[in-house]
Design a binder for these strands. Structure first.
Lengths: 359, 359
DNA sequence: AAGTGCCGAGACAACGTTGTCTGGGAGTAG
DNA sequence: CTACTCCCAGACAACGTTGTCTCGGCACTT
């Protein structure tokens, strides 16, 4: 039951390749060959080895194997996400895992929480573990440190946001196009006073979505009221509070375009609290679970995080296997999903309305 | 730019401890001491070493270190979840990561998808990587294979569901109590014909929630109509379809108790489609994002997956650090959150009503 | 029948690091 | 001034595995 007190040197109860060799009556190296599926081994010996492995519950030590092998593969990749528990990140994670699974590769994950220092710490931790590759949603605006970290021998793929200071494959959603489409959609439904609410400006996707909004407004010949642009929202409460402010103003917007999940949800909460959810139009960037069950159901620009993860993983494995063609940029299309909130007509509200609202 | 073609033996551009030693003018072992924070090193030499490390971008190889160290720690733990992308799993994941982070430990994750074979495959993969410990939401009903896999030297903690065939710490939600409370709550609101809809019967938590439902019914002296017990629902569409069937029956239930997230959402969809969401009461086991924004907001028995992950990780690290007290069972309380759907009064519907409903 | 070639198995070294042991230098006490 | 102690740095081996080389034996060729 407890660990076997063998008088021999071995400290742990775990069998080593040598033990298997002795049990099977062959040499250490022959066991290695069987474990690695080398075909030239005599089938009789191979069978003996397999029986000994079974009997001793031998499990190869990948660490030792990696150390000695010439390719230095650990069979492990690293995945740095904004937060493993948010729906976008975890959908991406799952897609990466599925690609890894087909190759017998395991995935180390970490949450960055938009913290550049944490990004570097985790990159270092993964370097020390000699991950075969890294997929990262960058939190900082400079990834040149990865050159030192990985010495050019570990492929990197950027997802969701471009990296800087390191040429690498990049998988991006069509943020500008998607945001333009959302804004155009609101304009097409008659809206003129449209507010944009976005995430931290230092996040590239937030800037791109903002850009798309501006593009569509300019294209339609509409002037953008700068007070209707609210950047740097990162939490539900922050968004909720800002939307409340916006809607209490003298000239409130008739439509909202929210640049991120949590902002969208904050906006929904604010609209609900003010009883304006059937009055003020809303389109959110990035889909979220149950968006279709809200009232009205929330129109969104859906991203495809699973596709992004899959493409990123495929790109990474292709690099790991030696592809050294120039870095590619993969665009994953977004999709406008009409559900109701984005199709509400503009209703210009008077000061009296707003007074009534707020009672 | 490309890898340096040193005429020396080293194949990769990465510096080894030996290179640092040469650059710093000290012995290999002194570098090792500095890297490991051994205090007895002359501060002057230590500084030289640190400078050399910086200059060469040296990163220790944890694999090689693990191989040689007497404690054999990899600084990596494994986490086996049902599916990294579902909200319960990913909240748990995040909590485990946060505990690991404070200890400089990294987390390997895998999704089991309720597949026993996958559970064994991943356990084996993690054994081969010599994870320091394993936190697992078991998918199979027998974990005795882990004894062979880990040879007793790798601690295991079960979360969300008990394991079998292996004594180990276990972190569980109070499923029976929570389900009893939910059912009692419906009974207290006057319901008599209450349906239970649950996940696969082979999942322990599904059995426990079912049990809690039966307990509360018996306690109230109510007979349970066996046709109102619907087990083995695992997806939203399956749940939706079954709920539709139930509500079209001659004597439909006036309240639903759903034993799992996806089943709850399926039920919400069905109720919406039938226009019965304000008529038939609903309580779901396990909270989910936006439950409070639906109409009516969904009353739930909330679990605390973050707490479960935190306690599980703490237990695991305590074992890794040598705690060999008898295995403990940790109960994480559930909480009834009243939001509206669970407080609807019973409305007995006639056949005419149902006919009208279905039009 | 002898020489050649080939193939499969084992001996040995090495991967990058740390545990252990040794030696030398400095400091202290007699 | 000598002898003893203490402490720090380095030499060496070892962790579990795989790459390389060698050797023995068998089959085939001439």
């Amino acid at each position: 039951m407890s660990s076997e007190p063998t008088s021999e040197a071995g400290r742990t109860g775990r069998a080593r390749m040598n033990d298997v060799a002795r049990a099977a009556g062959v040499s250490l190296k022959t066991v290695s060959r069987v474990v690695n599926g080398v075909q030239s081994v005599n089938p009789v010996l191979a069978e003996q080895v397999r029986e000994a492995i079974e009997a001793l519950n031998y499990r190869p030590d990948i660490g030792a194997s990696t150390l000695r092998r010439s390719d230095r593969r650990t069979g492990t990749i690293a995945l740095l996400l904004e937060d493993v528990s948010n729906p976008f990140s975890s959908a991406l994670h799952r897609a990466v895992e599925d690609e890894a699974r087909t190759r017998g590769v395991q995935v180390l994950t970490g949450s960055l929480d938009e913290d550049p220092q944490r990004e570097r710490e985790l990159a270092r931790a993964f370097t020390m573990r000699r991950a075969d590759g890294l997929i990262i949603v960058p939190a900082s605006d400079d990834q040149s440190y990865l050159v030192d970290e990985f010495q050019g021998d570990t492929p990197v793929v950027f997802v969701d946001r471009p990296g800087h200071g390191l040429p690498a494959d990049t998988v991006l959603a069509t943020n500008v196009i998607g945001a333009t489409e959302a804004t155009r959609h609101l304009i097409d439904h008659g809206h003129r006073r449209i507010a944009y609410l976005g995430d931290y400006t230092r996040i590239a996707t937030a800037r791109q979505r903002h850009q798309g909004f501006l593009d569509a407004m300019r294209e339609a010949g509409l002037e953008t009221d700068p007070t209707l642009i609210v950047p740097d929202l990162h939490t539900i409460p922050a968004a909720e509070s800002k939307v409340m402010d916006l809607l209490h103003r003298a000239e409130p917007p008739t439509a909202l375009f929210t640049g991120q999940n949590l902002v969208t949800i904050g906006a929904v909460r604010a609209l609900r609290r003010l009883g304006l959810h059937r009055t003020v139009a809303l389109i959110g960037f990035d889909d979220f679970p149950l968006a279709d069950l809200l009232e009205p159901a929330v129109t969104v620009i859906a991203q495809d995080p699973a596709m992004m993860g899959r493409i990123a993983a495929q790109a990474l494995f292709s690099r790991i296997e030696g592809d050294d063609s120039p870095p590619r940029r993969h665009w994953i299309p977004t999709e406008l999903i009409r559900r109701g909130s984005g199709e509400l007509p503009p209703r210009l509200r008077t000061a009296d309305d707003r007074l009534a609202d707020s009672l």
